[in-house]
Design a protein around this nucleic acid. Sequence first.
DNA 1: AAACTCTACTTGTCTAGACAAGCTGAGTCA
DNA 2: TGACTCAGCTTGTCTAGACAAGTAGAGTTT
Lengths: 241, 241
Amino acid sequence: MVTKNKPARIPAPYAVVKQYLKKNLQNGRWAPGALMPSEAELVAQFSVSRMTVNRAIRELQTEGLVSRIQGVGTFAAEPHRVSSTLTIRDLHSEIEERGHTHHAVVHIAKAELVTTAVALRLGLEKGATVFHTVIVHYENGVPLQCEDRYVNPACAPDYLRVDFTQTTPTQYLLEVAPHWEAQYRIEASAPTAREAKLLGIRRDDACLIIARRTVSMNVPITAARLVHPGTRYSLAGQFKP
Amino acid sequence: MVTKNKPARIPAPYAVVKQYLKKNLQNGRWAPGALMPSEAELVAQFSVSRMTVNRAIRELQTEGLVSRIQGVGTFAAEPHRVSSTLTIRDLHSEIEERGHTHHAVVHIAKAELVTTAVALRLGLEKGATVFHTVIVHYENGVPLQCEDRYVNPACAPDYLRVDFTQTTPTQYLLEVAPHWEAQYRIEASAPTAREAKLLGIRRDDACLIIARRTVSMNVPITAARLVHPGTRYSLAGQFKP
DNA sequence: AAACTCTACTTGTCTAGACAAGCTGAGTCA
DNA sequence: TGACTCAGCTTGTCTAGACAAGTAGAGTTT
């Protein structure tokens, strides 16, 4: 048996109420859609103030476990929309965290006139210039990702002066425009001829491709195509309700 | 100009404070890691009670925009761990939402002795029985997913009696064990011979594969391998800070 | 029967004050 | 110098009460 030096911390009252509700939701005491106890009832049951109960329930609400309707009541959430979340991380820190070495080789880094396709994706006008980089990232010397990226010069005028063997574009762009929204598309397909060559794989090897487009404060920042050899890379994630 | 019938609802004070902090975080007023105003300062600035300010900041904390240390202060979050979230949805509702038709064909539905690999994944003992289903899902008559699933009989004893042309296994299992945790792995690779045949694709066509393992209240429920033709399917998601 | 009103109940939010818990730095003592 | 104490700051949480806003249902009127 494990004994702790610290005395057993008694959990905060709001946490007690929250845990009680969570447990009973899990074991089906309140079927999905069913009416749950009102705040007043819980106040009486646990002898705490309404604010305390309210916090417990509100947190369950943001976790998606219950839904509330003002004037009506609190309901167990409908059969959880089977949606779940997966984490996509910065490749550099991911590799470092595995205790492996990361290095990058820059193949293209220049300003270009936008093509129609890129102009659309970045929300720029025809005839504008964009920065374009193609960088291959290696884990322990093995090519793991081919990163084909277009950047809006208005957001990162010094982008091409960055040493991308030291800093990943993602890291740099995060400094320039800290909080952003991103849209993703993840797909599997064969690489282009150039990508196959850069990654050292065959043209018919399956690749995991992430197409990412990021926007900060309604200004498009960057659009990237990240190609990973299917045999060397997979995305892992988990979901806790 | 657009005129609304309803009078402009004034936002709640806590929302005002929250929005103020969020705006200034985005435009870089507080660099990542920097000390932000204390609750007391915000109380004075906005003439609200501390509970109101506290709620605003606490919500920012759960959103990952700030981090707080008791006794020290509130800090702008570090260069957002470039992690981001992607939503994985139930195939049936996803197809329905596109206004398309979904149907499923059951190829295998039986009880089996576990193999070592499956026993490990499901956390069962050697010699136990599992339910095994192989189902192909179609969108508008085109095969979109091959679902190879093992289910822990202890969690869903009636699993094999379900009509999977009407209900997806995911939907059914959600009813039986409402709230669960899931682990995912997403990868790209070629299909097995059987999968290629069932999906009507070539053996060297790239596939997007989701391996999912779910657990509810520390009891393993199910392990599934979902194979999608790369040309017909992609995962989309977005991230808002 | 249909339309209305009113009451009772729900959630949503705010307040002013309180105490606990934790960190920091200044001052004190050995 | 080094170890200690303590005041003063921070966040973490709870309370008792209050009013607003929204809904459902009972009762009333038309």
